[in-house]
């Protein structure tokens, strides 16, 4: 993995992104704006399951209101994230927080898909799963930011230590 990261970091594409000074802050900014969209979509879907928001609307209506935000937001997050990974693969692949974020992201996406299945049919969804889904997405945001601080967060456990 270390070799792959070093190879990727030395590719012309990676070097081109690294050397365009405004590109990384721009992509990170878009990434954060999309986190706002996706997080609030998850928040409102979870609150609907818990009966704490939009109770005047059917669950399926709330789902069709926020599923597009979720879908499009996740696509833009994946694209901007991919370019950011290509620009600094060694920094990302050697960070524990990066891998933990990817694992939690897979869990978060699966959990919201399960909730979505129930919401779409106006069927009751697990309240425990709803709370867990929100916590997982909060953790995804936390570990995303923690990638830049792997040694500080993980200490001797970090591969970078």
């Amino acid at each position: 993995m270390q070799h792959f990261a070093q190879w990727l970091q030395a590719t012309p594409l990676s070097i081109a992104i690294q050397s365009t000074s405004w590109l990384i802050p721009l992509l990170q900014s878009i990434h954060i704006v999309m986190i706002g969209l996706v997080f609030v979509a998850v928040l409102l879907l979870v609150l609907r399951v818990l009966g704490l928001a939009r109770t005047d609307e059917l669950p399926s209506v709330v789902w069709s209101r926020f599923a597009p935000w979720l879908r499009r937001g996740v696509i833009v997050l994946a694209l901007t994230g991919l370019v950011l990974i290509i620009s600094e693969p060694v920094r990302e692949f050697t960070a524990i927080s990066f891998w933990l974020k990817m694992l939690l992201l897979a869990l978060g996406l699966s959990a919201i898909a399960v909730l979505g299945k129930a919401l779409r049919r106006d069927a009751p969804a697990s309240r425990g799963l709803a709370v867990l889904t929100l916590l997982v997405w909060i953790a995804v945001i936390f570990f995303g930011r923690a990638i830049a601080y792997d040694v500080e967060v993980w200490g001797a456990l970090s591969f970078k230590a």
Binding site: L43, I141, F142, R145
Partner: peptide, 13 residues
């Protein structure tokens, strides 16, 4: 910083 990102995402969204 992570809390700041979470808070900013909530405000924006």
């Amino acid at each position: 910083e992570a809390t700041h990102v979470l808070a900013a995402a909530t405000v924006l969204g």
